[in-house]
Design a protein around this nucleic acid. Structure first.
Lengths: 213, 213, 213, 213
DNA sequence: CATGAATGAGGTTTCATTCAT
DNA sequence: CATGAATGAAACCTCATTCAT
């Protein structure tokens, strides 16, 4: 019953154990997948008994939720710092992409673990717990950045569709990093940045077929 | 013990039962997720007993594998017909995208089910069964089509990175379709087609920043 | 998932298994108490695996609820037959008591088991599942019979208090039967019947002290 | 390891802590029942850590045993004072009942807690720890008082059976008090006293039906 | 072909107890 | 004296699989 809604102050030892357990859970999820990441496996990786996990977290669901919250918190902080430091729209987009892909490259297991949880964790009624909603904050935020690019324009639909593509491209990079030894994240980032910067989605930019003529 | 390696000839009734069970398994996976799609649930949806499923398939794993193979087979046939009917490189790419997204739009449950299986099914050793490999045939095929576009060029890396982005964009569309009521697949397809056709990834095409000047 | 709200038709084999499991659960509860009557113990007594119990009942709670319902159903049938066969108020009360105590004497384990469940089974919020309410049907029914006795009278309070005493006396007999080798249920029944038949609770019947004078 | 067989002298602080813990255990048992009264719950109510409970009592069983002994000691003292102050047999019986029911009414939680323990606590072999024996001291004592009443007579069986009924009636009052808002303990006591005082259990008293004539 | 019945491994959770600080 | 942390047994439940009918 540790994780009260009211933010509790944890002792140093407690924080260390919780961090260790979250790290082992991340490794278990990345390696064994959602169903394979059992409490027994997590405890074994941490070198403790199963009861320890139940002692420090209200239950497995609580553990998974905190893992997700912890990951998103750290990712958001890291990326926001980079975006806010840029001056132009193009730099913000490039900074967003580079920071995102750098974070993904450095926390590949975390990405994998969070994807496993988000894709599989369900409530008692069978519905996805992290339900994809119409107002996806990640996509909305990115769409705002992209709308400032001249080739995209302020039309909400274009920016939003492009944001969906880019978010998917970022998530795909995580998967490639983990499974494809020859995958070059730096080159991928460059290509993705260029793809976006050269994009001409606005209707007034002329028919795309004509450009080839 | 029906699904031998040697292609067996199935009776009409047998084929009908297998198709019915696969359809119910697809619905169960799409609705309840990987862990929630139990044999009991699948059998209940089909209106038969659990034993029937075990009789027609060697086991749950066999059922899932056949579901995936069946889906890929039908998707490949549908898309190949469209690509082969095109004359120019640009038309082939556009045909590929439109056929793909159309198939996704018409078989949303199938896409969801296959994604659940591919993302979760594991072998006894814990490794993913449908392991993403360096030689992803879907990506390779698409990269071949994209390499013919003037803005991409024959350099393998560019085409491959773009192919990864496009495949991710297609898969993302599947997810949006299922959860976002306002998602417009036709507009998304148009934007994605234009994004690719206007792409300028080749270094010699000039610096992308300059193009804006 | 057998015990649907809609009355399902059970096969002969199924009914036999359910009856056997309920009997073994009754024995386990009577012998080991509420906490000691585990599924493992019940299954061991029935000579089957733990899974069998879960197969035939939705869960332990379902099993316990059905045990209680089954017992009350059989007790009610047995006692009602005797009460309805009587012509006078005194005969109805005597029949009620004798039938009750006879049933208790013949189903001592069942009584003990039901008492264990009623006293201990709780809902998720910690409240007793079989919550004693102001309108206890057993007490109310008995109070109705007692109100017809001349020494009790129609005043609701007297009849109800006496009914509480008599119900407690019946339940106590169950406990004695199980633990006191020298307890004579027939003599107890005679004494209890006489106690009630000689009762003078009405105020107008004269002061009880005066009767001794 | 404090509660040695040899009576140890406790410090003031120690006695206060023990009393506090026993009070909280009583509340926990009354509210949550036997299984729900965990050491964690008791410690939480007392505002101390679980270790404190283990420190002051040899274990949970020791705590429960001392709770029962403490309650019976206080109840016995309170009731004996009232019985010994009476001069006639009828007054002793009435004093016993009134003192008993008054104690029950004033210590409802304690009664509930003791009933929970007595009904559920078991030894390692599964047998009830507070085993109802043939020589129940409470019943024997009450039977001695009742035997002096003219309507009961010296025959041991009558007195004993009536004592069983009266003990059950007293225990039932405890339950009603806790769950039935409209239950009137004073009226119940009056009715129970009159029921006993008007009892005619001796065979020679004539047929009970004739008395109505 | 189809079913109901049974199995048993494996999962999460609870909790009394112990121990170093 | 008191605490937080850890343990490990035991409980209930789920579910893929097997088998006799």
């Amino acid at each position: 019953m540790r994780s009260d809604a009211t933010e509790r102050q944890f002792t140093f030892i407690e924080r260390a154990r919780r961090a260790q357990i979250l790290a082992c859970a991340t490794a278990a999820l990345a390696e064994r997948g959602y169903a394979g990441a059992t409490l027994a496996d997590i405890a074994r990786r941490a070198g403790v008994s199963k009861g320890v996990v139940s002692y420090h977290f209200a239950g497995k669901d609580d553990l998974l939720d905190q893992l997700v919250a912890d990951f998103y918190g750290r990712a958001g902080t890291s990326i926001a710092a980079r975006v806010e430091a840029a001056d132009t729209a193009a730099d913000r987009v490039r900074g967003y992409l580079e920071a995102n892909l750098a974070f993904v490259a450095e926390h590949a297991d975390g990405v994998r673990a969070v994807l496993e949880i988000v894709a599989n964790r369900r409530d008692a009624d069978g519905a996805l717990h992290f339900r994809p909603t119409g107002s996806d904050p990640l996509v909305d935020h990115l769409a705002g950045l992209l709308a400032e690019l001249p080739g995209v324009g302020p039309k909400a639909t274009h920016a939003r569709n492009l944001a969906i593509v880019v978010r998917a491209a970022i998530d795909a990079a995580a998967g490639r990093l983990l499974t494809e030894p020859t995958f070059d994240p730096a080159a991928y980032t460059r290509d993705l940045v260029r793809l976006i910067e050269t994009a001409r989605l606005t209707e007034t930019a002329g028919n795309s077929h004509d450009q080839h003529a």
